[in-house]
């Protein structure tokens, strides 16, 4: 059906598509509701990954024990998506496929190097999250394809996570968000580190140069600050009514540094502050 009609749209939770339709920003000719396809709704652990089906409701992931233990970063970010009532319907795949630059789920997928799977006709394929998001509301999903699921790698060992975002009201779209996950080696140095920021540009991205500089270090706050600031220096940030590009860059650096500090403390087993919007 999708392949035959380029204006047909897949609908899952409808928490983004229906508002767009109400505002006449989207006028699909046909809607294909996939929420009743039972095989697309699951949360499965399989060794070093956790796989989540595209139509799994956000509230189900929010309450899931496996996600809480294996994917703490995802667990920490989910409450920031919309409201309880929208998470009750909104799906994981729906948010990813929508690719809002400010979406928390896209940021987490990019930060954790998740792999997205889709199906087009009878063909199935995978895309790494970093290649999946190509622009605001634009993904690498071929036309006629439907996202089926996402797999998040699970980090073993002493892992800590941090997530921060700034918005006008909690649950509103984030102006800027930052996520970090750290794995500490026995000597307390960062064995692995992933830092992602969202809301600042067309799609969420990783602070790769900062990751490189900080790997193998003790994550000294001054060094962290310097590294994230440098990594963000030439980013072309979005500017809109809510926040200027400069502001977004500045806040992204601060939030990323905080997320790393939280992740570090969390990995060390120190009591960790609750995630909060600012």
């Amino acid at each position: 059906m999708l392949a035959d009609d380029e204006n047909a749209r897949v609908i899952a939770g409808g928490q983004t598509l229906v508002p767009m339709m109400a505002m006449r920003l989207a006028r699909p000719t046909q809607l294909i509701d996939i929420t009743r396809i039972a095989t697309l709704s699951y949360i499965r652990g399989d060794g070093d990954t956790v796989a989540i089906g595209a139509t799994t409701r956000q509230c189900a992931v929010e309450r899931d024990k496996l996600v809480a233990t294996k994917l703490p970063l995802l667990a920490q970010a989910i409450p920031f998506i919309g409201y309880t009532a929208t998470r009750a319907r909104g799906t994981i795949g729906g948010s990813l496929a929508n690719a809002d630059p400010a979406a928390e789920l896209s940021l987490i997928a990019v930060t954790l190097d998740a792999t997205l799977s889709y199906r087009a006709g009878s063909k199935t394929a995978d895309i790494p999250a970093q290649e999946f998001f190509v622009g605001p509301m634009t993904t690498a999903l071929p036309s006629g394809a439907c996202l089926t699921g996402v797999r998040f790698p699970v980090w073993p060992g002493k892992v800590g996570v941090g997530f921060h975002e700034v918005n006008a009201r909690r649950s509103d779209f984030a102006f800027v968000s930052a996520a970090a996950q750290v794995e500490l080696a026995g000597d307390g140095k960062a064995k692995r580190i992933a830092i992602g920021v969202g809301g600042i540009a067309d799609c969420p991205f990783r602070l790769k140069s900062a990751e490189q500089q900080l790997r193998g270090t003790t994550l000294d706050p001054a060094k962290v600050n310097e590294a994230v600031r440098a990594a963000l220096a030439d980013v072309e940030a979005l500017a809109d009514l809510h926040a200027s590009a400069d502001y977004r860059r500045r806040v992204a650096a601060t939030l990323a540094a905080r997320a790393i500090a939280d992740a570090h403390a969390h990995a060390q087993g120190k009591a960790q502050g609750k995630p909060h919007a600012h």
Partner: peptide
């Protein structure tokens, strides 16, 4: 409430 859970009825089509 849909199955006891609060949802926005303006964002659901009736057949859903």
């Amino acid at each position: 409430l849909v199955d006891g859970v609060a949802v926005r009825s303006c964002l659901m089509f009736s057949p859903q």
